[in-house]
Design a protein around this nucleic acid. Sequence first.
DNA 1: ATTACTCGATTATTTTTTCTCATGGATATT
DNA 2: AATATCCATGAGAAAAAATAATCGAGTAAT
Lengths: 300, 300
Amino acid sequence: MAKLERTHLEIIRAVDEHGSLTAAAEKLHLTQSALSHTMRKLESQLDLAIWSRERRGLRLTQAGEYLLAVANRLVPQLDFAEERLRQFACGERGALRIGMECHPCYQWLLKIVSPYLAAWPAVDVDVKQKFQFGGIGALFGYEIDMLVTPDPLYKAGLQFVPVFDYEQVLVVGPRHPLLGAAYVQPAQLVDETLITYPVAVDRLDIYTQFLTPAGISPKRHKPIETTDIMLQMVASGRGVAALPRWLVEEYSDKLNVTPIKLGRKGVAKQIFLGFRETDAEVDYLRAFIELARAHRKQSG
Amino acid sequence: MAKLERTHLEIIRAVDEHGSLTAAAEKLHLTQSALSHTMRKLESQLDLAIWSRERRGLRLTQAGEYLLAVANRLVPQLDFAEERLRQFACGERGALRIGMECHPCYQWLLKIVSPYLAAWPAVDVDVKQKFQFGGIGALFGYEIDMLVTPDPLYKAGLQFVPVFDYEQVLVVGPRHPLLGAAYVQPAQLVDETLITYPVAVDRLDIYTQFLTPAGISPKRHKPIETTDIMLQMVASGRGVAALPRWLVEEYSDKLNVTPIKLGRKGVAKQIFLGFRETDAEVDYLRAFIELARAHRKQSG
DNA sequence: ATTACTCGATTATTTTTTCTCATGGATATT
DNA sequence: AATATCCATGAGAAAAAATAATCGAGTAAT
């Protein structure tokens, strides 16, 4: 008998966000009375309290917490679907929501995005970098439509296509003792300060593919958010970093930084584009992949 | 201005399922007129056709196809949330939706489920075996709450716990030449008929871990749905199969079938339970995992 | 303690939305 | 040609949602 409607989900979200029915009402362009009525009706139909009315204000019950989680999951999807339909209406083809799972991929992505936007004026591009459940979860959960990642996952429902090969190298500054070496070995980093992006160690290639197998840790480990600052730190001799070779070479015009091979054979990496199998036929999505692969041929 | 409501999603699903507005109206306990009005209003608000009215009846437009996909994804989640709230209301704790990704796991699962149902009378258990996007997708997409699988995936948002170790063995009938052998080698199966569950070869351990590495294919490959029939085929000398040792031993009372080790070292397997990290604290879910692990200690 | 203020619940009323009925045009079936 | 089926539509009825006004309870400041 009771039907969970979009309003209920929107109300519970707004109350959670703004703290009170009154404040939520303003945000939703309704009166406090309206929200109170709507939710009381739902509560009586379900014979279940969403909030406990203690002291002053509302506190979510266990059921309410659950409902809030549902709302936070579903309402954005409804919003997006609505937006998507509006785009259909104006002849726009849609939006490509791209998720990023590796920091330096961003620099690479920018090069693909600009010709893509030119070629597909009717398609919007949105780039996200934070996901509740990681990139794979974001794909399955329809938060994004395409994932840029170095870790493909060949599982039912998803497809991954390699689009870019590169070499991960060590970057050193102008007065670094390793400067000029053909390659570096793990043990040579024991007294170094290693600068990386602020992510877990098991997501950093220099650890998983270089240091950890050799049982080596650097003296210090310093997390830095942005590539620019990271390389300026390296150029000024504050430490060393690990980045894609092409990225280092791009910066070497402006900054005095030098790439050095990691180990005798170097560390080879690939970037993949992942997407839902059901989207495999979507033309503007295929086009993005084609563009990315074409770019590989140019630069490789 | 236009808001996508639950009704719209339900209508588009019902029309797709029943073929016409009239038929859909009956299913939804409404009149054809009501559905027509509701959808026309949405269409005019979005300024976009959901159906093209050609000849007689409705055909989905491109936008309509998209909306249908959204509806098929979201409506079941709303239904389930509603059901879940009702369970909250009667003091029930919830429902555990278990997904299965391996055929013989089912036999194992049954042994866990019955004591679980006894210990948690307020929790319903539902077992699903088919998923649009595979088990991982079903977890991320909230189709299921727990996945039983031999392939764990250590990725953000999901947790996997091993609950059962077993050995995958070859099963042969009473007059089979290999009977009594200590173990079997891949080449010994070239003239055999191999009976397996009807899934892709890359999901069958006997291929991925035994035959394919050796470059061997059996003479014939016969897919069979159920374990019972499969073992009866084996017992009557129609072929050989690969199954967990414990499963074969259970059947060996009734049927004359014998397990033989695959290769000198045997093929070791594990079953994992996977779940969303956000559910890690849900008591009735934890309890299921505990029960499964306790069962391992007994039987191992 | 008094006052002023904020919060949500409630009642009665108004407004809006939804549904139905009755009907009509279009298309296919016999 | 007659008939059945399908969807669209306008008008009116029914239902649902929103509002205004008010209440009581709790809180904070004076």
